[in-house]
Amino acid sequence: MYDFELVRPTNLQEAIEALQAEDAQALGGGQTLLPTMKARLAMADRLVALSGIAEIKGICTDDNGRICIGGGTTHAAVQSGCAETFPALASLAGRIGDPAVRNRGTIGGSLANNDPSACYPAAALACNATIVTQNREIPADEYFLGMFTTALEEGEIVTEVKFPVPQAAHYEKFIQPASRFPLVAVFVARYADGVRVAVTGASSDGVFRWGEAEAALSADFSEDAARGLTAPDAGGMISDLHGDGAYRAHLVKVMCARAVKACL
């Protein structure tokens, strides 16, 4: 790893200012950034650690009943803190990586990174969560712009993520056991006004909504309706040594049906 200056702000304003410097980058839990820097695939002149900022940690419920999670909240804290209020999200958080990764890694880091196989993007998109920064609120539908690409601008910090809680939801993850990431995973969220289905691990454009499944399940929320779908086109799917595009496309359909079954 190339050397850098580490800054440890204790409030958001200091962090925002520290990130103004050239080649400064936020450090969340470091569970993606540090391995990447160790491999010299990334470098920075300055890392701004967010872990000392209490105001972007923790979980609460707002006046609209949305679950609001601070951007610096660890996966482990979401796992325990949402167990009662949003069990599908708690379960997702509790299956990220392993216990040691969950004790450091944060929801803000995961959403900022937007790995095409990451778990949180599926939940955020399926729930049309609102991603909050120091400057604005971004609906998930406008936030994910392709593999490792988001609507975040330079120096923008994910301070909070607000999830409208679905009537029923489930995250079905087909694990790639060597990396612990999903090979393919599907988050199904049922709301009074319809069903949303988000898929991660499959597309080379990153997380996406599966429109056909949403339409079919909004009309008939049943396992049969999910099983009756045609798998999405394999064309844009990731193909690697763990599975080719056709296999991933097939898994999307199977994971979706399993998720629906678990909701019922």
Partner: peptide, 28 residues
Amino acid sequence: DTTQCGACIVHLNGEPVKACSVLAQEVD
């Protein structure tokens, strides 16, 4: 080198973490 093996696990403020993926200055 990839934060995957767990050989480096220590307890940081009581919680298990991978010591290869935490900066020393950060946890002063």
